[in-house]
């Protein structure tokens, strides 16, 4: 049975976007966490707070099996997005390897400690924060942008403390994150063309309920976040300035449009509650 034309055209666009993403990644962004990171430039003087941040990012990235298994299934019907998810997983897998190698080679963490922590981590499972592929794609925009901003800040901090190795890892990771963010954003642009009111409603819903992955599942997350805030200076103002508004601007969504969608959603919720 043939698919409806609209769906076929959509599939074609998503595949085209994936090809562009993939080609650029192959040409410009491929790197090897074992060979392209200058581990010989690890600084022994790096403060423990910076190391703890690296450990926390390593742990958050280590939920990859959950991110992949759940994330890829939600976009399974869309070839371009599903293949992106597979490629995304490959690229993300390098982030935790590079961070883990850093922690081990710097001897700031022992293999026993790190692998024990990894085992503890796997006792908890990451669950998708949103149910639909559209919501998860929107979530990807914010989450990848947030991770990009955090990694850029960490890179800067590592340069300040003279750790060229860790700065390189954060730079390479950040470059991947912004590429992922752009892919998600481009998909959301297509979704907005297809169904603007529905996509705006989802955009408001995701923005309202956004949390970073790792919350409540990484051991001692609250204490880790406190250290990250000190070291990376990510607060509400930064979230708005560097993540939220730039995403809206790229998507060509006005604040007003989003607020109207938010108000509509709130009215719908209160109508349901009143019934």
């Amino acid at each position: 049975m043939s698919r409806p034309l609209k769906d076929t055209a959509m599939q074609e666009r998503l595949y085209g976007m994936y090809k562009t993403f993939f080609d650029k990644a192959e040409q410009e962004r491929r790197w090897n966490p074992l060979r392209d990171v200058p581990y010989e430039k690890i600084s022994a003087e790096t403060p423990e707070s910076v190391i703890l941040c690296a450990e926390t990012f390593c742990l958050v990235e280590s939920y990859l099996p959950d991110y992949v298994s759940q994330g890829i299934n939600v976009v399974r019907p869309y070839f371009g997005q599903a293949w992106f998810a597979a490629n995304w997983a490959y690229e993300e897998s390098k982030h935790s390897v590079a961070l883990m190698e850093y922690l081990l080679q710097s001897k700031r963490r022992s293999p026993e400690y790190l692998f024990d922590l990894q085992s503890q981590l796997m006792q908890m499972k990451w669950e998708m924060p949103f149910a639909t592929s559209r919501q998860m794609t929107i979530y990807g925009c914010f989450q990848e942008m947030a991770t990009f901003v955090i990694y850029v800040k960490q890179e800067k901090r590592c340069k300040e403390v003279g750790d060229e190795c860790l700065a390189t890892i954060f730079r390479l990771n950040a470059r991947d994150e912004i590429a992922h963010c752009r892919f998600y954003q481009d998909v959301v642009k297509v979704l907005l063309e297809e169904d603007r009111p529905g996509t705006l409603a989802d955009l408001a819903f995701v923005a309202k309920n956004f949390t970073m992955p790792g919350v409540d599942i990484v051991p001692d997350y609250a204490a880790r976040v406190e250290v990250m805030r000190e070291e990376g200076k990510i607060d509400r103002a930064v979230f708005f300035q560097k993540i939220f508004f730039p995403c809206l601007s790229y998507l060509e969504v006005t604040r007003q449009e989003l607020m109207e969608a938010n108000a509509a959603e709130r009215r719908a919720v209160s109508n349901v509650a009143a019934e």
């Binding site: 408001a204 923005a207 309202k208 939220f244 604040r255 007003q256 989003l258 607020m259 938010n262």
Partner: peptide, 11 residues
């Protein structure tokens, strides 16, 4: 009042 609520008030 969450972030989006605040933006609505501003709007």
């Amino acid at each position: 009042i969450d972030s989006l609520g605040m933006l609505e008030i501003v709007g």
